[in-house]
């Protein structure tokens, strides 16, 4: 065989990104933040009176972290895993001269990368929605000026605290070829996160950890961030170990 492949992780990541072309996962990554921004637009028009930029941006982050993020991660991880499960591509991928953990880590990195893009898109579309709503209905125009640094920092913390959620959902999605286990876990998790909003257990519940970044108590937010980020890292490492050792991924 010609040149021997250099086992670079960057190549596996580039290939994973290449697979996103014309994919449902990419479409979903664009639609979910747009839905939140759309909601912010109509909510502002319905209010019919002005509110501060800070409130507008915070409420968009709240909707995102409370409901849309857990559901998006559920769907996104299921779609990303189905890219391989659907055409039964695992055998081909795993027979190539590359460390197997590269494939799984590239997939996890790609999901996290998409979440960063979705957060940035959410920030951009929400700002646009607030501006357009103010132009459309001047009485509903936002007051004051937007503090983008604070908003982006909040979205950043929400993203970092969602690592545990991503790790759990991605592991289930990669482990089972059917959509059902991943969707069932994601829907149940989100449901319990919604009905038990203020419960203490929310601090360790992957689907509720991100919304804790909006908690009035900074200590609670900090603890949730630590659990979500560090816990996510640990679970991702366990996932890489477990999946790389599995003989059959379907």
């Amino acid at each position: 065989m010609a040149p021997s492949p250099k086992s670079r992780f960057s190549t596996a990541l580039a290939v994973e990104t290449y697979k996103l072309r014309r994919s449902m996962a990419l479409l979903l990554a664009m639609i979910c933040p747009a839905l939140v921004a759309g909601f912010a637009f109509f909510h502002q028009l319905r209010l019919g009176k002005s509110a501060s930029w800070d409130m507008m941006l915070t409420s968009s982050a709240a909707i995102w972290s409370f409901f849309m993020l857990p559901m998006s991660v559920t769907a996104l991880t299921a779609l990303m895993a189905h890219t391989e499960h659907g055409p039964r591509a695992w055998d081909h991928l795993r027979s190539l001269p590359r460390p197997r953990w590269h494939v799984h880590l590239a997939k996890a990195t790609c999901v996290l990368g998409l979440l960063v893009s979705m957060s940035v898109l959410l920030a951009a579309l929400t700002s646009l929605a607030v501006l357009v709503a103010g132009w459309w209905e001047p009485t509903a125009a936002a007051t004051g000026s937007p503090d983008y640094a604070k908003y982006l920092a909040l979205l950043g913390k929400i993203f970092a605290s969602s690592w545990l959620l991503v790790a759990v959902q991605l592991w289930v999605a990669l482990r089972f070829s059917s959509f059902v286990p991943a969707l069932a876990v994601g829907i149940c998790g989100t449901f319990f996160a919604v009905v038990a909003t203020s419960a203490r257990i929310g601090l360790v519940m992957p689907w509720q950890i991100p919304v804790n970044q909006l908690a009035a108590d900074p200590a609670r937010a900090q603890l949730a961030l630590g659990i979500g980020f560090v816990g996510g890292g640990v679970v991702l490492a366990m996932m890489l170990f477990a999946l790389s050792r599995r003989e059959i991924l379907d």
Binding site: M1, A2, G86, P87, W90, S95
Partner: peptide
Amino acid sequence: GALLEAHGFYGHLSGRENLELTRRLLDLP
């Protein structure tokens, strides 16, 4: 190199793009 019973091609990509993915993973010209 293997031709497996389950081809494992990505339906949303073209044939050329599918080969391109494997080519990159094999570090071929």
